[in-house]
Design a protein around this nucleic acid. Structure first.
Lengths: 253, 253
DNA sequence: CATTGACTCTAACGTAACGTGATACTCTAC
DNA sequence: GTAGAGTATCACGTTACGTTAGAGTCAATG
């Protein structure tokens, strides 16, 4: 069992960082003493290691939380991707070292470098590509059979069907959005989440509770979803996601 | 001559980044078209290269500006330090790669890693040390003879002298602080900056205009100075620095 | 010559991930 | 018993842009 400063020293982060991670429920201590002190275990440290690897990859803390909270999170697979990413970062730094050495050489010999040569290595494109790909893999939640089921159903939809679907979607989202101040476990919010669940099963595919839970993650993990949902109301995606998780917890009692 | 998007593409930064650098006077385009378009030259690109190297070192944009604006900025020396820093970053990533490989190995074989082993490489201490040392070297503005002159003078000061010096310092700072809203070129502000200049010469060392200008840089480049001065009023260090530079420009006309 | 799409500008709000400082309680070594 | 280190919460501040909006500019095209 470790106290907060012990963890901070061991790992090389600040106490404030650990407090922050606790606040956002990214890394919550295993237990709390009567005085309110945080106590961390080896299990916490393992999760913290993963967090730091993901951070090194440039993944946001919210996304890291979503990843680590997934029931099907594959630690070994994640470690392999971390290794790949670190090798890419190393390669980028190697390129930058070459650039700086060529810059030194050019300066010492009064030469001019090509513009494209001057900036080799700074480009974050390759790393950002990797981040994107990883995020893409992480949010690949749909089993193929669901995609097929959905495609089978929707391929027969008329424009009228889509209009109805869009209207009902808006209706449900607005109903949930208008109760954001009541909290995600508000009965009215939960009623509409149930509507949403039923709506997906009626119109797209058989949506089990586990799949619905995965969808909740997706709404915040995939910024395209987040953006789209937040068009109804700022912050709705996070709120809806939380409400869906509460709903799933209730259904699975 | 390049337009803003051309530079952005060549270098791998965003247009917004270049706008931002222009706004804070870190990288100002060589010229502006009648339509207000920014035009960059090869000289701008060279400075941008330096900026990106310093950014890679984790130096703040304000500090980068201070460094690059110094008349005695040594580009070759800076490039050498960039190389050194990049090698340290590479070394850190190598350590992290080893950590992740050992983590994979431990997981595959059902072993437990030592806590200290789990977090090797994450620690930014060595890199932060390097940043600090670099910042230290950058703000080493005092020639040794001034330090000696100051030490010679102040070694004879009594407690009464120090009391008087402290009071006069406070007096000058308060006078300047109370005119911050008037702008750094306000006559009253400039009068007190002259007082400050004379005060340093009277009490510490012969303070030439160039040295005074260097001191102005130091007040914002060295966060210990910044913090100390800002105790009088938030933002006073930056304001005083600007006022001192205006004063020096006036003196050197 | 008008149009259009890409590019450019300024302005301003928003954001993530903490740092920092204040205040008060807790714990442990001396 | 005490002092210093460690712990808690709270809340404001910060950096470095991203993003959006609205409007002007430019060059290719029909």
């Amino acid at each position: 069992m470790y106290k907060v400063k012990e963890v901070a020293n061991l790992v090389g982060v600040s106490v404030r960082t650990l407090h922050h991670y606790d606040e956002i429920e990214l890394l919550q201590p295993e237990s709390i003493t009567p005085a309110g002190y945080r106590l961390y275990t080896n299990q916490n440290l393992k999760r913290l290691q993963q967090i730091l690897f993901f951070k090194e990859m440039g993944i946001s803390l919210q996304q890291i939380k979503n990843i680590l909270d997934r029931p099907d999170f594959d630690q070994l697979e994640a470690l392999r991707m971390h290794e790949e990413m670190l090798k890419k970062k190393k390669s980028r730094i190697d390129t930058m070292i070459q650039t700086v050495q060529q810059s030194i050489h050019a300066l010492e010999h009064g030469n001019e470098m090509e513009e494209t040569e001057m900036f080799k290595g700074f480009d974050m494109k390759e790393i950002e590509e990797h981040q994107k790909r990883y995020a893409e893999e992480v949010r690949q939640t749909y089993p193929n059979d669901l995609v097929k089921q959905s495609e089978q159903k929707t391929s027969q939809y008329t424009a009228q069907d889509w209009k109805r679907i869009k209207e009902e979607t808006n209706d449900i989202y607005q109903a949930i959005a208008s109760h954001m101040s009541q909290g995600p476990d508000d009965p009215e919010v939960q009623r509409n989440v149930a509507r949403w669940h039923q709506f997906i099963t009626n119109n797209f595919y058989d949506c089990s509770i586990d799949i619905f839970r995965g969808l909740a993650d997706l709404y915040v993990a995939d910024e395209r979803f987040t953006k789209n949902i937040d068009k109804h109301k700022e912050g709705l995606a996070v709120f809806l996601s939380e409400a869906m998780i509460i709903y799933c917890d209730e259904q699975q009692k």
